[in-house]
Design a protein around this nucleic acid. Structure first.
Lengths: 207, 207
DNA sequence: GTCTATAAGAAGATAGAC
DNA sequence: GTCTATCTTCTTATAGAC
């Protein structure tokens, strides 16, 4: 990895833990193994580093979104997966995504950084809301509405189902971010949530 | 309100919006209507102001917890309320608490401040987790377990019901914190969530 | 308790040698 | 591209008059 990228990496780690204002350019430089003035050959200011992190995050997010929608729309495929295997399928899907977002270094650091910077700037607030609330909710709502049409799920408001499914997952994710030592305990609750959700909303009354 | 208290109030407002490190003592002083050096007659340092805010918050929280448990445990009363009036009771309870936490100035600013400072210090992380996750979840779980015994709700894991009920409420609260102009839209979703939750988990199948 | 003046130090950024 | 030396500005905090 080149120096320019290593600066971003070190800065993201520090920003996500301490917040932008608590991080000094000297710290970033030290983490990279150079002196502070050398940073300015790569970025023109500290703010420029922050912006570069946002830009990289946006491009990663766009790439991921594009990948998900390669075949028109991935929610269709997910819905089919779920329709085929029911409860266990939803558990695999939900826990897989949870573990990815929890343990992927980049995803976790970026989530934390945006969390601690979200109120400083309306643009950051909007970015945060889109990425961690609106888009996941829209995706889940689409998937659940298809599962209703397939006759798999009860006919309830898909937007409500989406938030009842996703909000607990996101809350458990943030709890793990705060207190990583509780991951095991919280993962159990995650699986119970997905299974109970599946049972409660399944059309066949296996309750 | 005396100066000492007004300093806390101004500092909380600024910290919640910009984060501790982005706020300068001169800003706090200006908001209070005095000069920076005068602050030091009331608090010995900037960090001391932050700590005083935490202390005040803890004492408010303890007072509130004590009030809730005056008659042994308030969850019992809430459970009886719900048992009596069912869906509409839960809606009133849930939306009332939501509106209080969303619009109460102190509650909102403290929630935001803790949100942006939570990763800087394990103590803050624990405080945040206890106040906005563990304790509300424990309370709801207790209430739902009683409603199961009363035969009002289906026999499902109360801890799972608690997170499925509370996590969406908390998520909608944070969405309103970020983008206040969406309050109307999100309040509608909140009510739909509570009603659907009530219908789904009620023992009488009015689904 | 509030002010002005100022100390003491930290932090972002630049200059210029190598 | 990295370094040392340095500039400038900002920020916390103190001293001491009123």
């Amino acid at each position: 990895m080149n120096t320019k990228q290593r600066i971003l990496d070190a800065a993201l780690t520090l920003f996500s833990q301490n917040g932008y204002a608590n991080v000094y350019v000297g710290q970033i430089a030290e983490a990279v193994g150079i002196k502070a003035p050398s940073l300015y050959k790569h970025y023109k200011s500290k703010q420029d580093i922050f912006q570069a992190i946002l830009d990289e995050m946006k491009s990663r997010y766009d790439a991921q979104a594009a990948a998900l929608n390669m075949n028109g729309n991935n929610a269709v495929a997910d819905a089919n997966t779920f329709a085929a295997v029911s409860e266990d399928g939803l558990v695999r899907m939900g826990m897989g995504l949870f573990m990815y977002f929890l343990h992927d270094d980049y995803a976790q650091r970026f989530r934390k950084m945006l969390t601690v910077e979200q109120f400083r700037d309306p643009d950051l607030a909007q970015l945060f809301g889109r990425q961690y609330a609106d888009e996941p909710l829209a995706y889940q709502a689409l998937m659940f509405s298809m599962l209703e049409k397939n006759g798999v799920l009860k006919e309830q408001d898909p937007n409500v189902m989406a938030i009842q499914y996703y909000a607990p997952i996101y809350m458990l994710l943030t709890m793990c971010d705060r207190e990583p030592h509780r991951e095991a305990e919280l993962t159990v609750l995650l699986e119970q949530h997905i299974r109970q959700f599946s049972r409660i909303y399944s059309k066949e009354d296996n309750v």
